[in-house]
Design a protein around this nucleic acid. Structure first.
Lengths: 198, 198
DNA sequence: TGTACATCAGTGAACGCGCGTTCACTGATGTAC
DNA sequence: TGTACATCAGTGAACGCGCGTTCACTGATGTAC
């Protein structure tokens, strides 16, 4: 029963965690939650599985976050942020599109775009979760707009919004269909069209 | 306890349903399931609620469909089909885009596009459900392609796929964000861009 | 510096609840004669 | 056409299970003196 993987250091059986260790645990919970929610959906993963993935019991989630819903809200923000980091080095829209609409991204929703992974579940989420999602979406828009060479200001943001919608929609469709050929085709024709426009 | 709304005709308390009545019940279950799954997600609605919405008990779902999953598979096909019917009279891509990317559609997921409503839940569904989704997606592609004036054959289908992806992605984003202004903006800029292309 | 003790991250048992599914039963329908 | 009975759509109680949450407890950490 006593797993304690989160605190198994120095070989002792049990050890109350220091503030530093608690902060590490929190980060680990967020990383695993951000992955699991994207892989299995908000309702597809329970508090036991979330705790276990971080090497802790479910009770620790309540110490750190208070409820599953508040963990979800923080995990959504975390997931967006981690995904953005993966694209931090990208300096042009073409590269962004290629990377986003890749088979590598399609096969790995757990480390991928949050919109593509759980976008259609958002209307049914709490206010806190939707606020986190909305704020992150606005940041995505601004980041995408910065990569677009033509236009400026509001119109550039408009273009960024349509690009984000197209990429997310294409990835959702590509992951949803049970036909490899069609899935590949959705990715490649969307890539081609976006790179023609950008 | 004894509700029997599905069979309350002629004022009698109980009456075994005829084959005709059973077929009507089946249709009613499918209509309600197609609505509820789109409104609440595949995991967001249970067999009790599904039965009750059709005026029956959950047991009747098992007589008719055998399991919740098989009902979901049939409901997905049904939902796509009913949505397509709403667009049956549309004769050009511009009108289709306007109707799809409308606030009316955004506010009514239960009678709207299945991709927009539960698209990102599809990768986690059973083979039967995904097959129903995939078949319906192919039909959507063919129908959309038929509305596109330029190009032909495979290239026209390619354009249709990108349009479908953009519309679904835009609707998912517009429904997900907790900011009316941004939501309206996503719809209008996507409409503008698609009508420029089509 | 050493001692006494409050703090609080994490544990694990327990809770009420709703889930999907099973099953014995009901009784009008629909059919065999 | 009339009678006897098999069929089967739908009922409702029961099942085992996993869910999110609560809570008394543990014990090293971190602090007050």
């Amino acid at each position: 029963m006593n797993k304690l993987r989160g605190a198994e250091l120095k070989g002792v059986e049990w050890m109350k965690v220091s503030k530093e260790k608690a902060a590490e645990n929190r980060e680990r919970i967020l990383n695993e939650a951000a992955r699991l929610f994207r892989e299995k959906g908000a309702q597809g993963v329970g508090v036991d599985a979330l705790g276990e993935a971080a090497g802790l019991t479910h009770g620790s989630l309540y110490s750190q976050f208070g409820s599953k819903d508040r963990l979800l809200a923080e995990a959504v923000a975390h997931a967006f942020s981690r995904f953005a980091t993966k694209f931090g080095a990208v300096k042009d829209a073409d590269t962004y599109v290629s990377k986003y609409l890749s088979t590598e991204h399609r096969e790995n929703p757990g480390s991928g775009c949050t919109v593509a992974a759980i976008g259609s579940e958002m209307p049914r989420q709490s206010e806190a979760v939707r606020r986190a999602f909305t704020d992150a979406t606005k940041r995505s828009m601004a980041r995408m707009a910065a990569l677009l060479p033509r236009r400026r200001g509001r119109e550039r943001e408009d273009d960024a919004l349509v690009m984000l919608a197209t990429m997310a929609g294409a990835m959702i469709l590509a992951r949803a269909v049970d036909d490899r050929e069609l899935s590949d085709r959705i990715l490649s024709v969307s890539r081609a069209q976006l790179q023609r426009v950008a």
